[in-house]
Design a protein around this nucleic acid. Sequence first.
DNA 1: GGTGGTCGTGCTCATATGAGCAGAAGCCGG
DNA 2: CCGGCTTCTGCTCATATGAGCACGACCACC
Lengths: 342, 342
Amino acid sequence: MVPAETAAATELLAVRAAELYYEENKTQDEIGAILRVTRWKVGRLLAQARERGIIRIEIVHPRARRLALERDLSARFGLKDAVVVPAPADDAELQARVSEAAADYLVSHRPVPRLLGVSWGRTLHQVAEALPSGWSTAVNVVQINGGVSLSKRPGTAAATAVMIAQKAGGQATLLPSPAILERLETKKAIEGDRTVGGVLGMARGASAYLYSAGVADTSSVHVDSGYLTPADIAGLVERGAVGDVIGRYITADGTIADPELDARTLGLGLEELRAAATSILVIGGEPKHAVARAIVTHGLCSVLVTDEHTARALLSEPGDDTSLRADTGLESATTASREDAS
Amino acid sequence: MVPAETAAATELLAVRAAELYYEENKTQDEIGAILRVTRWKVGRLLAQARERGIIRIEIVHPRARRLALERDLSARFGLKDAVVVPAPADDAELQARVSEAAADYLVSHRPVPRLLGVSWGRTLHQVAEALPSGWSTAVNVVQINGGVSLSKRPGTAAATAVMIAQKAGGQATLLPSPAILERLETKKAIEGDRTVGGVLGMARGASAYLYSAGVADTSSVHVDSGYLTPADIAGLVERGAVGDVIGRYITADGTIADPELDARTLGLGLEELRAAATSILVIGGEPKHAVARAIVTHGLCSVLVTDEHTARALLSEPGDDTSLRADTGLESATTASREDAS
DNA sequence: GGTGGTCGTGCTCATATGAGCAGAAGCCGG
DNA sequence: CCGGCTTCTGCTCATATGAGCACGACCACC
């Protein structure tokens, strides 16, 4: 035999084998006959072709998931579960797919939560809409952060919780309070109110939480709703805020950006969220990568539902911005994961 | 059972099964256990997913081929053989791949031709270069149409034939004549010359032909070489010429565009090419779709080596573009090439 | 309400495939 | 030229998979 460029020859053979196997669906035996090699060699050739990525198998379907990414995310961030959907180019479509996936997850999640704590926002509303009627039986729902009574489109927050409860044939308990109060005393007073206090107590006892997160910019629902001014947001950003989780603005290292503001924010606390057995974060889209990273790297969620771009962003090197802000010792205390430079 | 939206539910199940099978490579049994169906159902689900195109298997490799298209082409146009390569976005790259594929084909083609008739041009030169040294033993080569003595880069035509022969350890016989003569008498005289006549005779006896084709526009090698002026080309286009085959300009319906010019063109005739047992056309790229169609639909080649876009264009409805080209006249002729990524 | 047709199901069984192994074939430093 | 090394080859055998079949559910049309 000519000991010529065997490497290239083998590769070409592998390509031919792959074509015959996957496109012509011939049997490895037949391929062996055609390429004049034994069927075992054909098998090895195909294995090699798969390893070397010559053969690409892709599942093209809106409801497809990226299981490999899910596994990586779970491992890297110590999540109980992760759902990653393929990202369409269109952002609206992406949000819809992520929301759908969250609804699917909720439907099939076991054990079924007795009481589900929910936040509100555009994403959560989409999740609620994506849930099928009768998605569960007798799941009660409780709001975990202040509503959106000042909103131009009032009732969104309430509608979300109610819809989720209704579709499961359960009761919704709303939190009848603004999200952020102007004065600390007012907040304390409202918190002390029997009704509000009762709801908060109930929220603390929920067996699972479902929430999304907002970006720290002027497109936030908080600005839209009048709780914060663009100037407030600017101030928060200056303090390193990357976004809000159930109304509380956090920095990249997972801490409260502005404690004074946070004290006036009514609802479940970050620590309560962190301590929860099941806290499902639904988040997708490029602008939210930073918040998503902050939440996920600091153990604020136990289940993540997102798109593949976000997933990849989370898994890739945290990069410069994190190191800028997180050179305190705090990071190691709150981080459940370590970054390995692979 | 809830007789709910079973179609959608089945599809989703198929997607999940596909993920587990192809991405996680679990066994159908295991998948059955996970999805709570029998393993037979999993098999059926996967079959369905493949049918419905949910699973896309692709072979990504420069040397990959599109066997399905090859089969379709052979069937549709009664070819003895077809080679279709995937088309890269870059046109230069595409030409290279098609040429390589042609070289591969030549190497493995059986029976090995005793005498190979070749034309010349950019494509053929690339094929020659892509042939490995010692690609065969004792294959002699003969030029089948007039050379390019007037060329700015002289010797290309000769170099191509010589290189092919040399790499097979054979002899090259060149056709020492211009491609197109200015006067019919001159052509007849040269044709009558012992040497030239002998070579032509030899060319007629070749056991296989290898050639490409040019587009009827000013970028043609004929203009480059000075055999034709841009005005000549414009005239040809007006007569419906779509391109040239071994120097002879043909229309979309496979006939000689300008008999007077053709009479002055020296080399193998179209009928001789059509009658040949093996005539290998190497052609690729969007601008050449029209010529390719003309050649292939009128039996001028028995083997086609091309790219997948050209293949698809040939297989799709003949219709509009041909007629469009015919009446746009010069405009389409002078447009060197428009790359489109369809 | 019967009755034939179509569909989906779970099976048996033949076949295709991958794991694992023993021997052959290069490959190299003595 | 030789032993030790890795790499490749062709095999045996267990397992995974698809074809084909019989049965039951469902449906439409009498």
